[in-house]
Nucleic acid binder design. Structure first.
Lengths: 207, 207
DNA sequence: GTATACCTGTGACTTTTGTTACAAGCCTAT
DNA sequence: ATAGGCTTGTAACAAAAGTCACAGGTATAC
């Protein structure tokens, strides 16, 4: 995707803003495994994924937990947040599928926020949606047993009832370890809620 | 606190905005135990606490978890979020100390966001700070054992090394049950990290 | 093919957290 | 002073999650 194609997909009305976006942003390409953002590094640009897929997560010594995935046309809310105050990242972002990223220096993002109405709407919506989503994740984490979180997560990620992920990946996404996921999946299989394959899980319940 | 006193404490520059705030907002007073916001109700006003204290939390059948406290001069980020899209609350908010609340109908909040620069800064900062705070809470919840979360929470809430809360209150704030908190506190006492009293916990470590 | 890295299964055990049940202490209002 | 409600303690048990150790399967690259 080119910058122009991207801009035309955004709900942006102002011609001037379109030109500013073209002038001040650049596109970078990244391979699977590249780090886009590292914990404790300063964030200097707003990152918008044009295509591919990026995993944004927090890590402690031995475990990780997913904050969000960035898919095509999605904006990294944390780098948006950083646009309004110089700060270090508290998360990592790693490329899961080769991707193109639109980079916009933070000062423009900040300025445009009051200058262009559609940009203002864009940033506000990004914050709002991310915040609401995170609150839900938070109380799910607090209240739901892992078994349920796992099953719901599979349901949400399935396409045609199939999830193509390894147990290790699921563990990283749900903040636990591989063995625990394997055990829970096996239990779910025994109760006929899914079928396990090699890097493949077939769900037996419709949404 | 009056609306005018409040407005003068805000980092608001535009005279016109000050007048609009005065004209379109109202102050309501609430007693301890009142619900300000209930789960599943529509949010129609932005709520800013002028004084007193409000607890905003999520609940499931038998447990609760704190989202945030609103103290004097603090804004309910979730009601701010609701200003930009009609939606139901996913949380409850209950008055913990008698309070005055400034209520601003959502349509003004939305309009002012692009009309007045200082209001725009105010809303953006509110979102940014809340989002960053919640991300931290999230990974703490995912990775830290309850014992550590409890101790850190006590440290953060202590004034002069003392926390005046019952075990039940702590359980509600940390998303668990009273018995669990009692047990963990007793362990912490045994390892000389604090001293337990009646509705009082004396911390034995400096920050 | 075979080496290598990833992927899955699983038993045994530990730790953490939640549940149930009950006893007793403290505080406040009448 | 005493009743009722909140507060704390605690044992015993159950369930959930994490850890360790090892075995064997699968896929891919050379």
């Amino acid at each position: 995707m080119t910058t122009i194609e991207f801009i035309n997909k955004l709900p942006i009305l102002e011609q001037e803003l379109k030109e500013a976006l073209l002038e001040h942003s650049n596109i970078s390409r990244h391979e699977k495994g590249d780090f886009i953002i590292k914990n404790n590094e300063y964030i200097k640009v707003l990152k918008i994924v044009l295509d591919g897929k990026v995993r944004v997560y927090q890590a402690n010594e031995d475990r990780e937990i997913l904050i969000y995935y960035l898919n095509a046309m999605e904006t990294c809310t944390l780098s948006l947040s950083a646009c309004f105050e110089d700060c270090k990242s508290t998360v990592n972002a790693i490329v899961e599928e080769n991707c193109s990223i639109l980079n916009i220096p933070v000062r423009f993002v900040r300025d445009w926020n009051f200058k262009y109405k559609s940009w203002n709407t864009f940033t506000t919506n990004t914050f709002r949606e991310s915040y609401n989503h995170l609150i839900n994740q938070y109380s799910t984490l607090a209240f739901q047993p892992l078994k349920d979180r796992l099953f719901d997560y599979l349901t949400s990620k399935a396409s045609n009832g199939i999830v193509k992920k390894s147990h290790q990946e699921l563990a990283r996404e749900l903040g636990t370890t591989r063995e625990v996921i394997s055990r829970l999946l096996k239990n779910l299989e025994k109760s006929n809620r899914l079928i396990l394959g090699q890097r493949e899980i077939i769900l037996l319940e419709k949404k």
